[in-house]
Design a binder for these strands. Structure first.
Lengths: 123, 123, 123, 123
DNA sequence: GTGGTCTAGACCACC
DNA sequence: GTGGTCTAGACCACG
C-alpha cells in the first residue's frame, strides 16, 4: 500500500508520513485501525525501523495517530481530511498569486483552470 | 533586491537561486544584464562567496545565466517566464487532482476557485 | 578504478565525472549500483570530499546518478551510452567538415579514414 | 572577420588564436600580410588590448606570425594547413577509438561515416 | 577585479 | 555511516 521512491529527494520518513495520511484520508485506514508494526513495515519497505519510528512519532505529534505502549500504533483523527483540503487550498492560492505577479492575466488564468479541469477529468 | 532568511531551513544558495530567477521573470533583470559579482553579493548578503558561486553555477547549468571568466555573470534566458508558469500550472494540476481523489466535489472545487480569486484580488 | 592526473590542468572534479561516466558506459558500473561514498573516494583519490561532492552533484544534475541522503549515490541512467556516442559522432562530423573547408579533397578524406581504421585495429 | 562568443567557456584569447589560424589556413590572410594592430583589433572586438596581445604572443611562439617592433605583426608560416589537418586527423582517430571501446561495432562505424559524409555534402 | 577550483574543517539531516 | 551545506582562506586563469 505504501510506495517509497528512493530517487526522490524528499526524505523517506516524510514519504511514509504522506502515504499514511493519504490512506487515512481516503478511508482505507479508519479510526482505531492498527497500523503495521515498526519492524514489519521496516521489512516491507526494506528500510530502517528507525525511519518508520520517526514517521510514527511525527504523526503522533500531529495527533493523526496514537500509540499504546507494548501494543501498537492506531489511527486517531477523523478530521485530517479537512486539514489536508485546507492545506491544498492554501497552496493553490499561493501558486496562483505568484503566477499573477509573474504577469499572468486573469483571462489566461481562467483558461488555465479550464484546461486543468479538462485534463483531470480525462484521467 | 535579494533577501535571505537564515532561520529558513531551505539552503541559502537555493534562496539565492529562487530570488534571482524571480528578478529575471519579473523583468527586473533583463537578458545580458550583469549580475553582481560573487564577492560583492557575498558581502551584501553577508554570506560566503562560495555559496554565491554555487548558486551561479547551478543557474548556469540550467541555462538561466552565462558566465564569462574574468568579466562576470550575465542573464541568458528569455524563456524562464514560460518555464516557471508551466511549472506552477503543473503544480496546481497535481494539487487539484489529489483534492478530487480526497473526495472534493466539482461544485466545491468551483467554490474554492471563486474564493481564491476573490482573496487574491483583495490584495 | 579512477585515475586522477594532478598535473593535468583540467579540474579534478571534471576528471572524476569523466571517469565515472566511462565506467558506466563501459558497463562496469550498472544501474542502481552504489558509488563509493564521498568520503571514501576522497581518501582513495587523496582529494577533498568536497571535490567528490561537486562531481556527484554535477552528475546528479545531468541525470546520470541519483542520491539518497544518508545512504549513498547510485547509478541512474541506462542511456548515457547512446548520448556519449551521439556526442562523439557530432564531434567527428564537425572535425571532418572543417577539414573539408580547409581544402581536404574527398579522396584524401577516404584515405584518412582508411589509415585511421587500420591504426586502430593494430592496437 | 573574427567572431567572439562570450557565452563560450573557451577563453577569448584562444578564440582569437583559432580565428586567426583559420583565416591563414583558408588563405584569407597570406604570408607577410599585416595583422590588425593590437589596439584596433581590441576596439573592433570590444575586448581588452591585453587579450589581443596575449593571442599574438602565443601565435608568435608557435611560429605562426612574426612581430616587428614598432611596425606590427605579420603572417609567417605557410605550413599551418598541414599541421592543422594532422591535428584534426589525430582528434578523429582518438574519438573513433573511444567509440569502439564504448562498444560501437565496425559495421555501425561504417554506417556513421557514411551518414556523416552525406550530412556534410548536403550543406 | 572577475570567475573558478580546491582544501580543511565544521555542522546538520537522514538512515 | 551517508549526503549536503556552509565558512574561511588560498591559489590560478582571465581580461
Amino acid at each position: 500500500m505504501i510506495n517509497i521512491d528512493y530517487t526522490d529527494r524528499t526524505p523517506v520518513y516524510e514519504q511514509i508520513i504522506k502515504s499514511l495520511e493519504q490512506l487515512i484520508v481516503l478511508g482505507i485506514l479508519k479510526p482505531d485501525d492498527k497500523l503495521p508494526s515498526v519492524r514489519s513495515l521496516g521489512v516491507e519497505l526494506s528500510t530502517n525501523p528507525n525511519t518508520i519510528q520517526k514517521a510514527y512519532t511525527a504523526l503522533e505529534a500531529r495527533g493523526v495517530i496514537y500509540s499504546v505502549k507494548g501494543i501498537g500504533n492506531f489511527v486517531a483523527d477523523k478530521d485530517i481530511k479537512k486539514k489536508k483540503l485546507k492545506e491544498i487550498k492554501n497552496n493553490i492560492k499561493e501558486l496562483l498569486s505568484t503566477a499573477l505577479t509573474y504577469g499572468l492575466s486573469e483571462e489566461e488564468l481562467d483558461n488555465w483552470l479550464g484546461e486543468i479541469k479538462e485534463d483531470i477529468n480525462k484521467n
